[in-house]
Write a protein that binds this DNA or RNA. Structure first.
Lengths: 113, 113
DNA sequence: CATTTCCGCAACCACTAAGTTGCATATTGA
DNA sequence: TCAATATGCAACTTAGTGGTTGCGGAAATG
């Protein structure tokens, strides 16, 4: 019944999503996957300073919030991006910033610096 | 000279920003401040299960990425929102999702499931 | 001036997260 | 079948984070 009237629900629901985005390695992995190729774990770990297992853990985090999806093909696990979730996160942030635009307008009405 | 041609720089630069957003308490604080009022630390901690000092730590995190700003007035420290940073974060995410839209199109051209 | 209120700093604790090493398992290919 | 490749799982170390308590200082209030 109340869809867009309860922003708090949405925000706290997105906390784990933002947390997943809040790591340089994971962001970099997403950028690499954003190139448009299916990448195996070994491929994704190739140029990086971390171990394959470390990269796999990061992929687990990204999988948990549905930012990426791994598909088993033969002996390798190919990862790809799940763009819908990112879009929803972006829209959440846009909603937040718009709400704060309103807040700022209200603030300026009071303060008028 | 290269503004939008290096998305990686922007993404990794925003990692700490996303990390700051990746906590329910901090998101909730931002929502509360989004209401449009200047709030003291004690006020912000009032209805919450955590201590004032815990809330203050969260405010430190939000301050470090310029999501909020604290202004000392008398004996109290009044916090307000800094909406520009949130907008830039939102735009980063929008850029990411658009890049991944392209990536998905390219993927579908190959796979055609 | 004494009291209350609001805050800041520091020490400390528990839990999580990032990263590692080691080993076992499954698939590919000669 | 045997070797190489790609992965998965588990234990462990280390560092960071969220949270607490305790105390001291500065400002408002009587």
């Amino acid at each position: 019944m109340s869809a867009s009237t309860e922003p708090e629900r949405t925000f706290t629901k997105n906390a784990s999503l933002f947390a997943a985005l809040g790591d340089e390695t994971r962001l970099s992995l997403l950028v690499q996957l954003g190139g448009g190729n299916l990448c195996s774990i070994t491929q994704l770990a190739e140029g990086r300073p971390q171990t394959r297992q470390a990269i796999r853990k990061h992929l687990h985090v990204l999988e948990a919030v549905d930012l990426v999806k791994g598909v088993r093909r033969g002996r390798e696990n190919l990862f790809q991006i799940e763009p819908k979730v990112v879009e929803s996160a972006a829209q959440s942030l846009v909603a937040i910033s718009q709400q704060w635009d309103d807040a700022l307008s209200r603030l300026k009405s009071f303060v008028e610096e």
